[in-house]
């Protein structure tokens, strides 16, 4: 009986180890191994319509999570090559109640949103964004060829011209009405460039500002159906850390 119990204990421990390894693996693999990008301070200015501390964050969306960005880093270490991803990280940090200006460089192609609501800019200063195109050769869905923007503030894009969106939601009980939605128009060479080199690849640079809410961890995600399966929200969209992340407001 002793031998049996020793072995039984080993099985039990083994099971616990398997469970913990599984949990540990998933906790590690499905979290954000790429660190936190802290906002750069620009002092205090009137960007958000009144005198507020002004900070800025810059990041990009890539069509290929395993690709290398323009500073030679892999977008998503160990990332799935057929999945798009935000980069260099998906976790950002900004001070509470500060004026936050984001620059998102959009390298990916795109198509139609599931819900046209997300083609409207919402919750930014003036409810607008400005987009500057570079090297884009793809046509817009209304026939505009090529689909380019000149940096004039716009309040919406065509719902069928979306590449991705940056949709930052509020926190229950902390910032209940907070919501920022910014559509990122599609980009890309006709060949469908995947890599994301600022110097040589087609891209749309989207700039917008908003006032951060109170302290808390805010979740953002992309509302463009860039995954597979039902409604295009399977695969990458169900995998945390590619097209979803957090904004830590501290």
């Amino acid at each position: 009986m002793r031998r049996l119990l020793g072995a039984g204990g080993a099985v039990l421990l083994g099971a616990a180890v398997i469970a913990l390894v599984g949990v540990g693996f998933s906790a590690q693999a499905y979290s954000s191994p790429r660190g936190v990008q802290k906002a750069t301070s620009l002092g205090t200015d009137m960007t958000c319509g009144k005198a507020l501390p002004h900070v800025t964050l810059s990041f990009a969306t890539y069509a290929d999570a395993s690709g290398t960005n323009d500073v030679g880093q892999q977008v998503h270490p160990g990332g799935n090559p057929s999945w798009p991803s935000y980069g260099p990280t998906n976790i950002f940090q900004a001070p509470a109640h500060a004026c936050v200006t984001m620059h998102i460089t959009q390298y990916d192609s795109g198509g139609s949103l599931n819900n046209p609501v997300f083609a409207k800019v919402q919750g930014t200063i003036g409810d607008t964004e400005s987009v500057v195109s570079s090297g884009n050769s793809v046509s817009g869905c209304d026939g505009t060829s090529p689909l380019t923007y000149d940096g004039t503030p716009i309040s919406a894009i065509q719902p069928c011209d979306a590449g991705h969106t940056f949709s930052l939601r509020g926190l229950p009980g902390i910032a209940p009405g907070f919501f920022v939605n910014v559509p990122l128009p599609l980009a890309g060479n006709a060949a469908g460039d995947n890599v994301g080199d600022l110097n040589s690849d087609a891209h749309q640079t989207v700039t917008f500002s908003f006032i951060a809410g109170p302290k808390g961890t805010y979740a953002w995600n992309c509302e463009y159906p860039c995954g597979l399966s039902v409604a295009g929200f399977g695969a990458v969209m169900g995998a945390y850390g590619y097209m979803s992340g957090y904004l830590h407001v501290v």
Partner: peptide
């Protein structure tokens, strides 16, 4: 309330299993 001990994906995986 606003824990990031587990990512939402890991949390859902754990709840299901």
């Amino acid at each position: 309330p606003n824990s990031s001990f587990l990512s939402p994906q890991t949390y859902n995986a754990i709840v299901s299993i």
